[in-house]
Amino acid sequence: MDITIDQDRCIGAGQCALIAPAVFDQRDEDGLAVLLTDRPGSDQHTAVREAAESCPLSAISVREDPEPAA
């Protein structure tokens, strides 16, 4: 899972930091979202997806890792 935040779209609503505080935080100076890690452990994936879906301006993008070939 790769995560990116479009800083031009982020308005600092803070839903991401509330939903997935191990992955997202907010800058002190303007409240915009920042990543604490862009490759979270699998235990954080559900929260990251929920945080991305909750972002009011869709500033968070999540790219899932491809499934390994069998």
Score class of each variant (00 low, 15 high):
L35H: 11
L35W: 14
I11S: 10
I5W: 01
L32G: 02
R9M: 07
S42F: 13
A69G: 06
P40A: 11
C16F: 08
L57P: 04
A47F: 01
C10A: 08
L57E: 13
I11R: 12
Q44K: 07
D6K: 11
E64K: 07
A59G: 09
A52S: 08
A70L: 05
T46R: 14
R63C: 04
A20T: 05
C10Y: 08
H45W: 11
E50N: 08
Q7N: 14
P40L: 05
C10V: 05
P21A: 01
D30F: 08
A22P: 04
P40H: 09
D2R: 15
H45D: 13
E53S: 09
D28E: 15
C55P: 08
A51E: 01
D28I: 03
S58T: 10
Q7T: 14
I5Q: 13
A33D: 01
G31C: 04
R9P: 04
D8E: 15
D28Q: 13
D25V: 06
V23M: 07
V48K: 00
Q44L: 02
D8Q: 14
Q7H: 15
L36P: 09
H45C: 01
S61T: 15
Q26D: 08
A69S: 12
F24D: 00
R27Q: 15
S61Q: 15
P68I: 02
A59W: 01
H45V: 04
E53G: 13
D28Y: 03
S54W: 00
D2Q: 15
E50V: 05
G41L: 11
L36V: 12
I60C: 00
G12E: 05
R9H: 11
C16H: 01
Q26R: 14
H45R: 12
I5K: 12
G41W: 14
P40M: 07
S54R: 08
G12L: 07
P68G: 01
E53H: 12
E64A: 09
A20P: 02
C55Q: 01
E64L: 03
V34E: 14
D8L: 10
S54F: 00
E64F: 03
P66C: 00
L32M: 12
E29D: 15
D38H: 13
L32N: 03
G41P: 10
Q26W: 07
P56Q: 09
C55K: 01
D6Y: 11
Q44C: 06
S54T: 02
A22Y: 03
L57D: 11
C10I: 04
E67C: 04
T4H: 10
A33K: 05
A20C: 11
T37I: 10
P66K: 11
E29H: 14
